[in-house]
Design a protein around this nucleic acid. Sequence first.
DNA 1: AAACTGTACTATGTGTAGTAGTACAGTAAA
DNA 2: TTTACTGTACTACTACACATAGTACAGTTT
Lengths: 137, 137
Amino acid sequence: MAKTAVVNINIVTGDPRPIFRQIVEGLRMEIACGNLPVGAKLPSVRGLAMQLTINANTVAKAYSELTTQGLLEARQGLGLFVAQPKQRLNQDEQEKQLGSAIEKFVNDIAYLDFDKKDLLNRIEESISKLSHKRDED
Amino acid sequence: MAKTAVVNINIVTGDPRPIFRQIVEGLRMEIACGNLPVGAKLPSVRGLAMQLTINANTVAKAYSELTTQGLLEARQGLGLFVAQPKQRLNQDEQEKQLGSAIEKFVNDIAYLDFDKKDLLNRIEESISKLSHKRDED
DNA sequence: AAACTGTACTATGTGTAGTAGTACAGTAAA
DNA sequence: TTTACTGTACTACTACACATAGTACAGTTT
């Protein structure tokens, strides 16, 4: 049987995001960075709940959303696995989400002091950590 | 008496953000882009509520948060005005917020298709619309 | 059969968001 | 002085989101 991957996420008290969303976003990044490759087996609902000291239903909710997003694949009685990535959004929806993300980001940083070049470098660096972005020009 | 500025924001049904937050973020951008210059007089709590067809207490809540953030200055009996910008965060807190914003942004775009150079250009372009970022190198 | 796994449900409590309504204090204009 | 604007603050209510606790069922492997 496949060995359970180590999931390196934690819940930050005081983070304005709900707990289940911190899990969702934490796992999205772990998968996007290649720390959880396709086929990796995630901790069980009850296992991750104990690890994070939260309720199992909260973990189940996060896992359910990731499954709906196509990042995970659930097999009842067996566990949850990182799914083979597939294109799920059409071009228009992609463009819309990209635009929203840029707008939200600029809103967040609008009142901060920073050097523009430095900022763009940091963004480029963070993007380069995404595993499927590493091989691009 | 100062003329009330026209505020070009609207509430998007279906937007996951609470209504008061859409107002906060909309006004932050209007101010940051120079559409609402220092000293501009905003619509009254009751006026904006009517304009947006929402409750006046919801507007008051948004205005209150913007006042706390230092972007607006309230004068009881007179109205609300765009405040003189002032540095409010220390360097550490700035860096922390910048890091969080980048992290959140990369999480949002991690599964989208985009050309890296194009993305960085679009971010640079959006930043250039911020009025206090126009004169920078 | 036991022990793991996911899935789904009810029930409860807490906190947030928004509305509706009301009232008070400050200011300017008539 | 009155009127009409302004911001500020409060109570009360409803609805929803979030998280927990508990329970039970079905699938799979050992």
